[in-house]
């Protein structure tokens, strides 16, 4: 009791022995301030900070990109040669213009639509394939598991970027091809985590109960197993969106992206790379900042959510 009197903020704490219904019968040495400073509370607060900072970063990019058609912007493809190579903050051109007189802000926003559509479609496909393959491998085991695991291993040892470049060269750089190529590169991650989670989950009593009730295996997986692991898997899939945007820009940079004149983020940077030597730094720097802002945002939100989900599931960080 003597130790607790020195603690800060003790005055605000109601004496638990006086609280009606208190079973403790003594006041606690744990004050609200101490609780707030505890590691668990700090972790919770930090994950909230990460989610908010991330949401703001991503929102600053996503909202203008989504509204690109509605904003009063110059055409992203047809430029005015009288206004070529203006630096940022010129009149009417916030981000400046390129040597063809095309407004960089407009190109970045319209290009972002292509990049984001490809990214979202790609994680949708890879998430779906990954969850189905991972759940089947984890639940059925046996030869299904062997096939899926071997495929995952085989893909690990292939020079992935080279394969992706090859496939784009083969089928042409259209949006569906690039989307599928990125999805192909990404399906192992959701598959691996789904498989690992299903392996744990299928040993739980409720699965045995469902089996005893005579439910079909497919409906056990889709109605009972997957809802219990979906939260953790979706966080991983969200983090893949960040990877997809980076991969798409890398492919565009290597010339295997959506073709000119339609802008994409990687393509804009790639076009600007011969020009920064002549002092036109903004053509490379600004699109990169926009990509980084979006990817940082998505990564922060995903990371914060992952901390939360882990805590809710009572795992160690």
């Amino acid at each position: 009791m003597t130790t607790s009197t020195n603690l800060p903020g003790r005055q605000q704490v109601p004496n638990l022995s006086e609280v009606p219904g208190s079973i403790l019968g003594r006041d606690s040495a744990v004050t609200k301030v101490l609780l707030r400073r505890s590691a668990a509370a700090r972790r919770a607060r930090y994950s909230t900070i990460k989610i908010w900072v991330g949401a703001i970063c991503a929102g600053v990019v996503v909202v203008p990109v989504a509204l690109a058609q509605l904003l009063p912007l110059p055409d992203p493809i047809i430029g005015q040669l009288s206004e070529s190579s203006l630096p940022p903050l010129s009149a009417g051109h916030l981000f400046g213009t390129d040597p063809n007189g095309r407004d960089l802000l407009s190109r970045v926003l319209h290009g972002g639509q292509t990049s984001l559509v490809i990214g979202v479609l790609a994680i949708f496909v890879s998430g779906l394939v990954g969850i189905v393959a991972g759940a089947a491998a984890g639940y059925f085991g046996g030869w299904v598991d062997t096939i899926v695991s071997r495929l995952l291993e085989a893909q690990m040892s292939l020079p992935l970027l080279l394969m992706l470049l090859l496939v784009v060269a083969l089928f042409g750089p259209s949006i569906p091809v690039i989307t599928l190529v990125i999805a192909f590169a990404q399906w192992p991650e959701p598959a691996r985590i789904t498989r690992a989670l299903v392996l744990v989950e299928r040993e739980k009593p409720y699965v045995a109960a469902a089996r005893v009730l005579g439910l079909h295996r497919i409906s056990i997986i889709t109605r009972h197993l997957i809802p219990n692991i979906l939260q953790q898997v979706l966080v991983v899939v969200l983090l893949l969106l960040a990877q997809a945007v980076l991969l798409e820009s890398a492919l565009s940079f290597l010339g295997a992206g959506v073709q000119r004149p339609y802008p994409t983020w990687g393509g804009i940077i790639s076009d600007g790379r011969e020009l920064f030597v002549t002092g036109k730094w903004w053509l490379v720097t600004i699109p990169g900042v926009v990509i980084a802002l979006l990817v940082v945002g998505v990564n922060l939100v995903g990371d914060g959510l992952r901390d939360r989900v882990r805590r809710a599931k009572g795992e160690e960080s």
Binding site: S249, A250, I291, V295
Partner: peptide, 21 residues
């Protein structure tokens, strides 16, 4: 933590160009 997340969020070719500039 936030700094490392930022580090893994930048396109590598872009980092290269910025360092070059």
């Amino acid at each position: 933590n936030i700094a490392t997340i930022a580090g893994q969020s930048m396109p590598d070719f872009w980092i290269g160009f910025v360092l070059l500039i």
